[in-house]
Design a binder for these strands. Structure first.
Lengths: 188, 188
DNA sequence: TGCATCATGTAATCAGTTACATGATTTT
DNA sequence: AAAATCATGTAACTGATTACATGATGCA
């Protein structure tokens, strides 16, 4: 149930509405935990009912009221408890790896376009992370470091390392697929 | 629904029972896709009912019959269709990253033991992958390469790269946690 | 005698995704 | 006039996890 904890962390960093949280889950915290707005609304409601979150209805002109959630004392305690519990190192779920092994039973060249597409997506993500790192941590206009920011930065460095590793591996995959294609289908 | 496809790939590589598949999902294919036996039995039953798999009941002495599944023509076609469809590059679900950001609201030193534990697990996995690579692909007793094995190898190289990257990142995380601890709690 | 392994499953619950639904405001 | 953004939700479905359940064989 790490979505609960991801929400607690995000709301401790800054209180906000379900909508705002959903947007944060598209960037920032979403780099390492995803959730859709439907899921978020459901969980917020449950956590508020359980007393983990406080709710403040903010009336707005011409718009539906905004429900701003913040972390209640019980929520903070729940997060702390979770931080002290060991968690399992996660196991991967990697569709592309399944596809690559499956390609042995089809034409490996089928996958070249797909792998290139993934390569492109990961290159974009890397560029995006690096820009964010520059803006928020290493650039001249970055705010002064404090423990919270240091921890955010080390997590972002993890994302950067992951994207770099993935890109290098996809290069390896592409080279392998081309090699197999060339062997099966030698030039005239 | 990539579990279906992971099962198809595994059964194409070698037919087997639910029990055998469950064990393969603890190693080999399980390096990049996890599933428990309960899940596997359920999915096998459904896929057999849908005509994607063939079932052969193998009577055994003193033991319950073994149900050996193999891929039917329709299953092969379904796999091929899936290989030609684009899939979304997966988004991460990384509990530990959530914890690290959460540590800003608790004592960061809490996490040192946890991070060391993960470091240990990933080091073990890396050693295990490297031994497997030696045994199956690069060592003197490794079978001759063919396209299927080349693809298995490139997937394994991905696992190795992932573990190496993760270990290096966890070193970075540990150094960061120690630095924060030292700053908060200077030596006497 | 007890534990691990082989071999199979059901039931209940929880988490996550997809589709549907509404309605105002702001920007192009 | 249309599209994007702000803001909230329900309902149905699918997928994954956890707990429970059975029973033989073989090893220490």
């Amino acid at each position: 149930m790490a979505l609960d904890h991801a929400i607690l962390v995000s709301l401790l960093e800054r209180p906000g509405s379900g909508y705002e949280l959903a947007r944060r889950f598209e960037r920032s915290i979403g780099y390492f935990w995803t959730a859709t707005h439907q899921q978020i609304y459901r969980v917020l409601k449950r956590m508020e009912a359980d007393g983990l979150l406080d709710l403040r209805e903010v009336p707005q002109q011409g718009r539906p009221d905004k429900k701003e959630y913040s972390v209640a004392e019980a929520g903070r305690a729940a997060l702390s408890r979770w931080l002290h519990e060991p968690i399992e190192p996660e196991s991967l779920r990697h569709d592309l790896a399944v596809k690559i092994r499956g390609a042995a039973f089809d034409d490996p060249a089928t996958l070249i376009g797909e792998v290139e597409r993934h390569h492109h997506v990961h290159s974009d993500r890397l560029a995006h992370y690096l820009a964010g790192e520059q803006r928020d941590f290493t650039g001249p206009d970055a705010p002064a470091p404090d423990p919270g920011r240091e921890l955010q930065h080390v997590v972002l460095r993890g994302g950067i390392a992951y994207e770099r590793m993935t890109i290098a591996w996809l290069d390896d995959v592409l080279a392998t697929l081309h090699r197999l294609g060339a062997a099966a289908d030698p030039p005239a």
